[in-house]
């Protein structure tokens, strides 16, 4: 899976959680949860959805690496 495909998947999953926002307007260093108004429950659902869709294991101690689009992309690229 290339970078574009990972990003597309992330956007699809974010759109499902926060349908009223356009995830493609996210800045690379912006905090995703703050920008899209995602609470801890939806944040966990997002991690679950990424894990299932991309078949990666994201341990709890790595949650911090998923905070921004840039860090999440970098993290997933390494994992896949």
């Amino acid at each position: 899976m290339n970078k574009e495909e990972i990003q597309k998947t992330i956007f699809q999953l974010l759109k499902r959680i926060a349908p009223e926002h356009d995830p493609s307007t996210l800045m690379p260093d912006e905090n995703i949860r703050e920008a899209l108004n995602i609470d801890s429950f939806d944040a966990l659902q997002f991690i679950v959805a990424i894990s299932e869709k991309l078949k990666v294991d994201i341990p709890e101690e790595d949650y911090g690496k998923t905070a921004t689009l840039k860090s999440l992309m970098a993290y997933l690229e390494k994992k896949i």
Partner: peptide
């Protein structure tokens, strides 16, 4: 597993 994880709430 990620599906079973607990939240503080």
């Amino acid at each position: 597993t990620v599906q079973q994880r607990l939240l503080p709430v």
